Amino acid sequence: MGEQIDGAIYYNTDHYIVEAKWLGGAVEAERMTNFDGKVRRRRKNALGLFVSINGFSNGGKELFKRGTSFITMDGHDLFCVLEARIRLDDLISAKLLHANRTGDCYFPASEMHI
C-alpha cells in the first residue's frame, strides 16, 4: 500500500529521492508525473533524481520544462561520469542549478560544455 522508492541520497545539504529505470525505451510522461507526485508528498525540502538509462520522452520533458520537483539523468550522462568527462557531484550541481534557474528537469551533459 505504501509507495516504493528505488533509493535516497544526501548530497550537498539536500535529500534526494531516487527513481531508476532500465527500460527498452524512453520513460514516458506518466511515469515522470508519478515520480513528481512521490517527491512532492515527501518533506517540503525533498528533491528527486530520476535516472533512466534510455532517456525521457519528449512529452515528459516538455511537461516538466517549466516547473519540476526533480532532475533527470540518462545513460549518456552516466557514461560521461564513468569516462571521467565530468564528476558526478559536478553533474548533479549543474543539473540542479539549471532546474532552479529555468524550472526544467532536463539538462543533458552534452549541453554542459564539458
Rank of each mutant, 00 (worst) to 15 (best):
D89V: 01
Y11W: 14
G24C: 02
F64W: 01
K44Q: 11
R66H: 15
V27C: 09
L63K: 14
L88I: 07
K65C: 15
C80P: 04
M73H: 08
D90P: 12
K38H: 08
A84G: 06
R43Q: 02
K21Y: 08
A99N: 13
G55H: 00
M73Q: 07
D14P: 09
E62K: 12
V27T: 06
S57E: 06
L49M: 10
V27L: 15
R40T: 01
A20F: 10
G67I: 06
L91Y: 02
L78C: 11
F64S: 01
N58S: 15
A99S: 15
L88A: 13
A29S: 11
K95L: 03
I53Q: 13
H76R: 11
R101C: 10
A29R: 11
E19K: 10
G25V: 00
A29C: 10
G55T: 00
I86N: 03
T68V: 10
K65V: 14
E83S: 11
W22V: 06
N58W: 12
N100E: 04
S93V: 02
K21S: 07
E62Q: 13
N100H: 03
H76W: 11
H15S: 07
E62I: 08
Y11C: 03
K65M: 14
F50L: 15
I92Q: 04
E83I: 00
D104C: 04
N45D: 13
G59W: 03
F56W: 02
M32Q: 00
E62R: 09
I17Q: 03
F79G: 04
L63N: 06
E83L: 10
R43C: 03
R31F: 10
R31C: 06
F107K: 07
E62N: 14
T13A: 12
L47P: 02
P108T: 00
H98S: 13
P108A: 00
R87W: 12
E19C: 05
N100V: 00
I17H: 01
P108Y: 00
C105W: 00
F107G: 02
E83F: 09
A84E: 12
A99C: 13
V39E: 07
F107H: 15
F79Q: 13
A29D: 13
C80D: 06
R42F: 08
H98G: 10
G59P: 10
H15Q: 07
W22Y: 14
T102Q: 05
K38R: 08
V18Y: 12
Y11V: 03
A94M: 12
T13Y: 14
